[in-house]
Design a protein around this nucleic acid. Sequence first.
DNA 1: GCGTGTGAACCTCTTCACAGCG
DNA 2: CGCTGTGAAGAGGTTCACACGC
Lengths: 212, 212
Amino acid sequence: MIAVKVSEKSIRRLSHYARCLRLAKLRGELIMTSQQLATNCGISSAAVRRDLSIYGEFGKQGSGYNVNDLLVNIEDILGTTNPPPVIIVGAGSIGCALMDSGLDGTGGYIYDSIFDNDPAKIGKKCGEKIIQSTDEIKNVLEVNNEIIAVIAVTGGAGQQALENLVQAGCKAILSFTLEPLRAPENVEVRYVEVSTELDVLTHSIRRKERVN
Amino acid sequence: MIAVKVSEKSIRRLSHYARCLRLAKLRGELIMTSQQLATNCGISSAAVRRDLSIYGEFGKQGSGYNVNDLLVNIEDILGTTNPPPVIIVGAGSIGCALMDSGLDGTGGYIYDSIFDNDPAKIGKKCGEKIIQSTDEIKNVLEVNNEIIAVIAVTGGAGQQALENLVQAGCKAILSFTLEPLRAPENVEVRYVEVSTELDVLTHSIRRKERVN
DNA sequence: GCGTGTGAACCTCTTCACAGCG
DNA sequence: CGCTGTGAAGAGGTTCACACGC
C-alpha cells in the first residue's frame, strides 16, 4: 500500500465503507461489489472503485471485494486497526451522554476517561468511569500522547479546555462547542456543529426557487 | 435577492458567517470586512466575498459589510429568520442531553418537544419538557409540518423512528444513529457521525507519509 | 459474462488579481 | 486609499466508458 495525498472527502467515505463492511461481516457476507457498497453509502459505484483504487488494487475482476480483506486494508489506510483511546473533557450532560452511549460498533474506539474542573463533580461517577480533575489530563497524555480528546464543555470554556489539552501534548480534538477554537497548526480540530446542520436543513426545506 | 443553485459547502459557510456576525453584534461592532470574517472562520477573504457575491452586493467598497444588514440578509438566504421548531425523538441519554444543553446562541432554534416509545419514560420530565409518546408526533406535525426532527434513538430503532416521522409529514431530519437510514427523495436527512469524525482524526494523527 | 481499475472528459469549487466604487 | 465584486486561471473531485482479468 502506497500512501497518497489525502482528501478529506475520500477519507470520510472510507470510514463509511468500513462501517458497511463491518455490518456485512456480521451478516456473514464474504464478498461485496462496488455497486453494493455504493448503494449502502448512497453514492456511485465508480466513486467507490475510484476511492479504493487510489490506495491499491483490492478487488477481483468478475467477483468483487473480499469483505474481510478490504476491511483490514481500509483500517490500515485510516490507521484505525488499533484505534487510539478517546477521552472526554467536560462531564456535563453532553459529556456524560457520550460516555453513557459508548462507542460500540464504531470500529473499536472506547471512551477511556472523563474529566471536569468542577470540584463538585470530581470523584463522582459518570457511567462506569469516575470523573477526574482536568489537572490529571497531562498524566494520561504522558503515558500515551496518541489519544483523541472530545471537548464537551459549556459556556465558553472551550478555548481553555483546548489549551490545557494542547499543553499536555494532545494532537487531535473533536469539539462540541459553538465557539470556533484557536489551535496550533499541528493540532487537528474538528467540530460537531448541530446548529450548522440545522441551518442546512432549514435552508433545504425553505429554499425558494426564485431562479431569475 | 436572487436565489441561485445551492452549494452545500457555501451554505455551511454562510451558517458560520451568521454565527460570527451574531457574536460581533453582541460585542457592539457595526462593520466587518471580508478579511475579519475570513479570519474568524479560518478561510480566505476571497472565499467570503465570493460566497456573499453569489446572492447579492451586500458590502460597501472601502469600508466593508454592515454587521446587522449582512446578518439579516444571510438569515434570509438560509431561511433562518424565523427558524423552525426542533423536536427530539428518543429520550435516552443523547436526547435528554441535547434537550438539557438547549440551543441558545445558535440563531433562535428551540427544542419544542421530546418523544419516546418506552411507556416507562412517557410522562416523565426531561429538562423542562414532559416526554410524550411517539404516537403524538403526528399531532405535532399536523399543526406545523415545517419542523426539524432530531433522531436520538439507540439500538437500531432509527429506521422505525424515521418512518414514523416521514409518515407524519416530516421533511427534515438530523440523525445521531450509526446506521444509514433510508428515506424518500423529498425528505432531507443529515447525520452527526462521531465515529466518522474520530476516523478522520485518527487518520490525521497517524497518516504515514510513505509517498512513493 | 461480470465487475474492477483507470484514462479522459467533465464539472464544481477555489484562488488570484485587478477594475471600480465609496 | 481601502475593500468589494468578479472575470479568468487553476486545482480538485466526479462521472463516463471501456480495456482488462477472473
